[in-house]
C-alpha cells in the first residue's frame, strides 16, 4: 500500500524490493532487468558514472511506459526504479520487474520497458573515463537519435 511502482532514487536499489512490488498470487512468472555500470565500453575504461534526471517528468514517463505495457500485455504488473547521482562500477542503475501469469509476456514486457526508457525518460548519464568525461547522448559515444534529431513519434504515442 502506498508504495510507488515508478521511482527515481539516489540510493542503492534492492532487487528484492522491486520483485515484491509486483508479486501476486495469480502471477507465476516474474522477470527482472538489472542495468549495472559496466567498466569497459568499446575498449574505453569507465571510472564512475553520474546520472542526472528531470525527476518529476522521469517518474511520469516511467508510469507512461507502465501504461503502455498494461495495454499491450494486459495481465502484467510493472515496477521500475532508476538511480541517479554517482554510481561506481557494478552499481545498479536501473531495475525493471514485471510479473505475469505466464512467462512469455513477462520477458516481452520487460524488454519493451528498457527500450522505452532509453527513448523517452529524461535521464542523462555522464561517463567519467580514465581520461576525461562526457555527457552520453551528445557525443559519438552514443547515438540515441539515429536521424540526428529527436524523434517525436517515439514520445507522442
Amino acid at each position: 500500500m502506498g508504495e510507488s511502482l515508478y521511482e527515481i532514487v539516489n540510493k542503492p536499489i534492492q532487487v528484492e524490493s522491486l520483485v515484491s512490488k509486483v508479486e501476486r498470487r495469480e502471477a507465476g512468472a516474474i522477470t527482472t532487468f538489472i542495468g549495472t555500470v559496466r567498466e569497459w565500453t568499446k575498449g574505453k575504461r569507465t571510472i564512475y558514472l553520474e546520472y542526472q534526471a528531470y525527476v518529476p517528468m522521469a517518474v511520469k514517463m516511467l508510469a507512461k511506459i507502465g501504461d503502455e505495457i498494461g495495454e499491450r500485455w494486459p495481465d502484467t504488473k510493472v515496477a521500475i526504479t532508476h538511480r541517479i547521482g554517482r554510481l561506481d562500477i557494478s552499481d545498479i542503475a536501473v531495475v525493471i520487474a514485471v510479473s505475469s501469469p505466464h512467462r512469455k509476456a513477462a520477458y516481452e514486457a520487460n524488454e519493451y520497458a528498457i527500450e522505452r526508457i532509453k527513448q523517452i525518460v529524461p535521464i542523462w548519464k555522464k561517463e567519467h573515463w580514465e581520461h576525461g568525461e562526457t555527457w552520453i547522448g551528445d557525443q559519438l559515444e552514443n547515438t540515441p537519435y539515429p536521424e540526428g534529431e529527436p524523434n517525436l513519434k517515439d514520445v507522442k504515442i
Binding site: Y51, Y54, K118, P122, P150
Partner: peptide, 22 residues
C-alpha cells in the same frame, strides 16, 4: 511538446537532450 506549441507565462519549459538512462 513540438516546436509549434505555445508556451505561456506560468509554464515550465524543459529542454531534453538525447536521453541516456538505463
Amino acid at each position: 511538446a513540438m516546436d509549434e506549441d505555445i508556451v505561456k507565462s506560468g509554464d515550465t519549459v524543459a529542454f531534453i537532450p538525447p536521453v541516456s538512462g538505463g
